[in-house]
Amino acid sequence: MEIQQYNFIFLYQETAALTKRLFIQLKRRPSTFFAGILQPIIWLFLFGALFANAPKDFLPGVDSYGNFLGAGLIVFTAFSGALNSGLPLMFDREFGFLNRLLVAPLASRLSIVLSSFFYITILSFVQSLAIMFISFLLGYGFPNIYGLGVVFATLILLVLFVTSISLCLAFVLPGHIELIALIFVVNLPLLFASTALAPISFMPSWLGWLASFNPLTFAIEPIRIAYSSNFNLDLIALNAPYGDLTCRNCISLLFLLTILSLVIIRPLLNKKLT
């Protein structure tokens, strides 16, 4: 991104226009948005039923499986949304609409990235709130105000991390077929290799190791803790094979990963967007 006579009013105007376009598209084609809410709720319902008769204290710290699962599903929803964020960009590349943006005198082409990020963040907030609200109705509780803060901070980091990777892929891969295939391959395995569905103590040691390096885990655990009534940032969130991580540790790790990914993809976006 050429940093040149930055004009923030211009940057704001073009980013707003790009974001608005994404929301108009959403408004006129809302099915994926609703599917994104519906799917986790169906899961919540089915998985909750599947383990309804499990022994009372089979999971540490929570009183039902549905309670345990909520955090995983919120993260999964945000993760899927962010993973898909490269698709509109890929279609713009394929249909030549991107050229319209590239011949325009954008203050910075960063606005193309920023708009996707805003869009996905707002989307995943709304979806998460819907899921949280419905799981509240199902009797799985609701975080307090600090807990909510942690939920959203964690989601922002995760969304930023995954969106930047997805946008990068949208520039690197040859077409939307390849992008969709990759999303398809990555999506569920990453979910299963995290602590979304089961705690590390349930896993064979190799999977436990895998799960405790999985960025999704770093997002899921703080959100899970955020639901507890005596929430604070120094509660142990994860019993990883390499040691215990507090809520704060998890969020810091996520933060580091996000910064790292931004640093790594920057040159590539620079190259593609000059």
Binding site: A17, R100, L101, A107
Partner: peptide, 12 residues
């Protein structure tokens, strides 16, 4: 009209 509006914003 939305497209023109969008384009106008890209050109500030």
């Amino acid at each position: 009209r939305e497209l023109l509006d969008f384009q106008a914003d890209l050109y500030h």
